[in-house]
Amino acid sequence: MIKKIFSYLIPIKIYQSKSSLSKSIEVTWANGELVLDSENANYSYGSLQRILRIGLKNIGFEKIAAMEHILVLGVAGGSVIKTLVDEIKFKGKITGVEIDSDIIKVANKYFALDKIPQLDIVIEDAFEFVLKTKNKYDLIIIDIFQDTTMPNFLFETFFINRICFLLKSRGFILFNTMILNETQNIRNRKYVSEFYENQFRIRTIPRIEIHNELIVIEKLE
């Protein structure tokens, strides 16, 4: 409790480690809440939770609450899952895919991720999971970063087509991206152009927390 109070004055780090995939995993008290960070980016809670909450509000909390199955690609500490369960009161199934088993151990210990009954965590590369899954989803949340870098496969046509195939009719994709330069801005514009207007409704929410751009895609048929 003392650390939580003092964190309003200065961030207080309570845990730091490395994993085979992350140079640094840090848990810190900041402004009265626990956050999970990498070396240069917020991984869960804090600004990231605010960013994805905006995207979920854009889709509509009531609409999400009525869904049956949500896929989260990139779990980290699980802040978007906590938003789904605690704020939106989502009662359906959540499948979370995370490549880094060490970060899930941290999420279980400090953020009680393993106490969410409808959550199924799969330790696997998101690309491999998407290739193999036979399920269809009402909402696919894509939030995959390695520090401040996004894997190239997220923007490749094959992956885009596969994600779209896994969406139910009237389902949504919520894609969190980071734009640090003009090349990445062009990358995002190209990504949006991959979707056919008669099959998808697309909107972007730019410059959230300065560098993030959310892409919201609705499947129309």
Rank of each mutant, 00 (worst) to 15 (best):
V106H: 01
R50M: 04
A41C: 07
T133F: 00
A30R: 13
L214T: 05
I94W: 00
V35S: 08
F165D: 08
S169T: 15
P206R: 09
S47C: 08
L113D: 06
L52E: 08
S19Q: 00
K168W: 02
K3T: 06
I51F: 01
N185G: 14
L36R: 05
A76I: 02
K23D: 12
S79E: 03
Y15I: 05
A41Q: 15
R203E: 14
I205S: 00
R207D: 12
K57Q: 07
L180C: 07
E209G: 06
P117Q: 13
K93V: 13
K3R: 10
I12N: 12
K82D: 06
L84G: 05
N40P: 02
A112Q: 13
N135Y: 00
E98F: 01
Y43D: 04
K115F: 08
V192L: 10
G96R: 00
G77K: 02
R201A: 12
L220K: 12
F158D: 13
P11R: 03
L21W: 05
E194S: 06
N198F: 09
Q184E: 13
V192A: 10
I123E: 00
R203K: 15
N31T: 11
L119T: 07
V75T: 06
L166H: 12
F145R: 02
K115P: 10
G78K: 01
E128T: 07
R203L: 10
G46N: 03
G171N: 08
F129D: 01
L21R: 06
V122W: 02
V72N: 03
K4P: 09
S44P: 02
Y43F: 15
Q49Y: 10
N176R: 13
A30P: 01
I88E: 03
E194C: 12
F111S: 04
K3L: 15
I99R: 11
A76C: 01
L84M: 10
N176C: 12
W29P: 03
A41D: 14
L214G: 04
S193C: 06
N31S: 09
I25R: 00
Y110W: 13
G77F: 05
E124V: 03
H69R: 14
I14S: 02
G60R: 14
Q146W: 11
T133I: 11
K134I: 14
L131H: 05
G60T: 02
C164E: 03
G78S: 02
F129A: 02
M1I: 12
F165M: 08
F145V: 05
I208V: 12
K18R: 11
E39L: 08
I10G: 04
L84Y: 01
N212F: 05
I144E: 04
R207S: 11
D125S: 06
K105I: 05
V130F: 01
N42R: 15
A112F: 15
L113S: 03
I179Q: 14
G60D: 04
T183I: 13
E194T: 15
I208W: 06
P206W: 07
I142S: 04
